[in-house]
């Protein structure tokens, strides 16, 4: 009965397309948390991935060690030169820190936007299809990781936590094209600080774009870009990168700065998840709501 089979095939196809659209719609929607079956699947896969990534990481480590050995001598020379500067810098830093603490005590400010806790994590996988710029790390909710925490390497910020399961979390890199992926940034120049938003990634230049800089502010090429801590999510002072070019936007109302990320966004192995200790706006609102309820 060929028509019957044709019908059956057609029904299967239609049903699967409906299921597909429903599932995609479900997973694309704004969600605070991923559902428990997804978390469960992620944990199971992540467990195996954790084991599978160990030997790969080990071999990579050996290759890197050998590469490091070859230029040890020249590195040593430059490092020795830097060491003398470092001693000077260290005394300055201790002095300034103490000064800062004393002044804070005088004006009675306890919270600091700069304070944060660190969770160290290892990258266990990168999305193989490489469209969503995301990596997966081996720490999850049980390690206290929550959505939207900042993630950085030793050299600079690389992204934020997109979702978490019990034992793994997904990190969305700064290079991901997501209109909601905005970081409130601060460009340090000699006279004053300029505020802007890190919005988008220029694929052809491999550089981040800091937009919404007022047109009358002067931004110098080579100035450092750090997080401002004003978004209420990330702490202040995480290094993002360095300005390479400034151009005005199409209407001439604001400027856009191209920023070279301080940390490579591709070759990642060990990362740090940053938990901000100063309360953000959301938490302050929640607290005040709780208090009202108690009253």
């Amino acid at each position: 009965m060929p028509p019957f089979f044709m019908n059956k095939r057609l029904i299967v196809l239609l049903l699967s397309i409906i299921l597909l659209v429903a599932l995609i719609g479900f997973s694309l929607g704004e969600r605070d948390k991923i559902s428990w079956p997804e978390q469960f699947a992620k944990d199971i896969v992540g467990f195996g991935q954790n084991i599978a990534s160990k030997p790969a990481g080990f071999t990579q480590g050996i290759i890197e060690n050998v590469q490091d050995l070859t230029n040890t001598y020249s590195e040593n020379q430059t490092l020795k030169a830097r060491l003398e500067e470092l001693v000077l810098l260290q005394t300055q830093v201790t002095d300034l820190t103490r000064d800062n603490e004393e002044l804070r005590a005088v004006v009675e400010i306890e919270e600091n936007l700069r304070d944060f806790n660190v969770v160290n994590a290892t990258v266990i996988a990168r999305n193989p299809d490489q469209w969503q710029e995301s990596i997966i790390i081996d720490k999850g909710q049980i390690n206290g990781i929550e959505k939207d925490m900042a993630v950085q390497t030793a050299s600079g910020m690389i992204g934020r936590i997109k979702d978490t399961s019990q034992f793994t979390s997904t990190v969305e890199l700064l290079s991901a094209r997501n209109p909601n992926n905005r970081v409130s940034a601060l460009i340090q120049s000699e006279e004053s600080n300029v505020f802007g938003l890190v919005e988008g990634f220029d694929l052809s230049r491999d550089e981040l774009m800091v937009k919404k800089i007022p047109f009358d502010q002067e931004v110098e090429v080579g100035s450092k870009v750090i997080t401002s801590g004003l978004g209420g999510v990330f702490p202040k002072d995480l290094l993002i990168g360095e300005v390479t070019e400034v151009s005005s936007d199409e209407y001439g109302l604001t400027q856009t700065a191209y920023v070279k990320p301080a940390s490579s966004l591709y070759d990642l192995e060990h990362v740090m998840v940053i938990e901000r200790t100063a309360a953000g706006q959301d938490e302050i609102e929640e607290d005040s709501q709780d208090e009202e309820e108690e009253e």
């Binding site: 659209v21 599932l23 699947a41 992620k42 896969v45 991935q49 469209w131 969503q132 997966i136």
Partner: peptide, 14 residues
């Protein structure tokens, strides 16, 4: 598994 673990958009590779 690919969708859930890597892309987070369920349905494409499935």
């Amino acid at each position: 598994l690919y969708d859930v673990f890597f892309t987070g958009i369920i349905g494409i590779y499935m």
